[in-house]
Amino acid sequence: MSKPFDMEVFLAGVLTGSRATRQRHLRQAKIIQVDIAERWQRETPWGWQRKHVVWFLEHRLKGRSGSSQYYYLLTIRLLARRLEKPWVFNRYQEIRRPDGRP
């Protein structure tokens, strides 16, 4: 019997900011994890490939507001930093911050 993956422990070393920001990143990371696990049967971020994250960005965030897409992209960058992956998502660079700045 295996223990469920703990996203909070996984991200503990890279989470910074206010409590609300940390909670948002955790909530979004868990949503990303569940969606990728359902679609690709990859239960933990250690098994993810870049294509899994791109799938999430392209299919699960379609129709979401620009600010939601931006905040999910920040969470994905945090996950990539924790995984020590050099993932870059150039197509998503045009996503603007909620205040309109690039």
Rank of each mutant, 00 (worst) to 15 (best):
M1S: 14
M1Y: 12
S2C: 10
K3D: 15
F5W: 08
D6K: 13
E8M: 08
V9T: 15
V9M: 10
V9Y: 13
L11A: 00
A12E: 05
V14K: 07
V14M: 01
G17C: 04
S18M: 06
R19A: 13
A20E: 15
T21L: 15
R22N: 10
R22M: 07
R27Y: 14
Q28H: 10
A29E: 13
A29S: 08
I31Y: 05
I31Q: 14
I32Y: 10
V34Y: 10
D35C: 15
D35T: 07
I36Q: 08
R39L: 09
R39H: 14
W40R: 06
W40N: 14
Q41L: 09
E43W: 11
T44G: 06
P45S: 03
P45V: 09
G47A: 07
W48L: 08
W48S: 03
R50I: 01
R50A: 11
K51G: 04
V53T: 02
V54H: 05
V54D: 13
V54F: 04
F56V: 00
F56L: 05
F56D: 02
L57R: 00
E58Q: 10
E58R: 10
H59Q: 14
H59Y: 02
L61S: 03
R64Q: 06
R64K: 12
S65W: 12
G66D: 12
S67Q: 07
S68G: 07
Q69Y: 02
Y71L: 01
T75S: 01
T75M: 08
I76R: 01
R77S: 09
R77L: 10
L78I: 06
L78P: 11
L79F: 06
A80T: 02
A80L: 09
R81K: 14
R82F: 00
L83K: 00
K85M: 01
K85L: 01
P86F: 03
W87T: 09
W87N: 00
V88I: 02
F89W: 02
F89Q: 01
N90I: 10
N90Y: 09
R91H: 04
Y92K: 06
Q93S: 15
E94D: 14
I95D: 07
R96W: 02
R96C: 06
R97P: 03
P98K: 03
D99T: 08
R101D: 06
R101M: 00
P102V: 07
P102F: 04
